[in-house]
């Protein structure tokens, strides 16, 4: 599987993260999106007329949308990543749509603030704040019912779809300080075996041993 990728794209990171968590190897092809705008070149527009990344190529299958790619990788991973029941599958579909909304709010605020993408920063931030509150409420209620992840007992593509734009919201001037349930959920996602970072999301250094302790163990 080839992933046409940009290191700073939250939507590309969704795919890299799910692939890493589920052990599905990707061949990464870096695209010079900023400043090169290579994703709008004729060859990339031929591959994905939407002019966006990520693009996944798997044999004859070409997918140019992160939700579609997560759906594919999640279905192949099994083990609940795409929902164990029809009800959970439907709930996950709802969160995939919500993740697209986040892309247009918190994600847009980040793109405006960081690399000068067009648009109104205050408006994108206001939409982002409303979306973060909705997610906070959902996660707080999941926690009150004893759950950790958005749908079901285990992590699913719903969590992976929402996680990048949420974690990178501060890049667009949206503080995560007001959201304790989001903080606990994000720690649970970051602690999953095989988790990988992207720029703007730091390593959970608390999961590594103190260096001197490591030396003693050798």
């Amino acid at each position: 599987m080839i992933l046409h990728d940009w290191i700073l794209s939250p939507n590309c990171y969704k795919v890299r993260l799910l692939a890493a968590l589920t052990g599905q190897p990707l061949t990464l092809r870096a695209v010079n999106v900023h400043p090169g705008r290579d994703h709008l070149s004729d060859s990339y527009l031929a591959l994905n007329p939407a002019g966006t990344l990520p693009i996944l190529e798997d044999g004859d299958l070409v997918l140019g949308d992160s939700a579609a790619i997560l759906t594919l990788l999640g279905a192949r991973a099994g083990a609940g990543w795409s929902g164990q029941t029809p009800e959970d599958t439907a709930r996950i579909a709802g969160w995939l749509a919500f993740a697209q909304d986040l892309s247009g709010s918190a994600g847009q605020a980040r793109a405006i603030d960081m690399i000068g993408a067009p648009g109104s920063l205050p408006e994108a931030q206001a939409r982002g704040r409303a979306h973060l509150r909705r997610l906070e409420q959902a996660l707080a209620e999941r926690a009150l019912a004893g759950g950790t992840f958005l749908v079901g007992e285990t992590p699913s593509i719903a969590d992976i779809a929402c996680f990048p734009h949420v974690m990178l919201a501060p890049d667009g001037g949206l503080s995560l300080a007001p959201y304790p349930a989001i903080r606990l959920w994000s720690r649970a996602v970051r602690a999953l075996p095989g988790f990988i970072e992207m720029p703007g999301i730091h390593r959970l250094h608390e999961l590594s041993p103190e260096p001197e302790m490591e030396t003693e163990l050798r």
Binding site: W6, I7, L8, R29, A30, V31, N32, H34, P35, G36, D38, M114, P170, D171, P199, G200, H202
Partner: peptide
């Protein structure tokens, strides 16, 4: 590839950004 070189440098610099802010 140019995209790899740009991406590497962007990765490093954006890791610093949340510190600087």
């Amino acid at each position: 590839a140019q995209a790899d070189l740009v991406g590497f440098q962007q990765m490093i610099f954006v890791q610093d950004r949340s510190i600087l802010e």
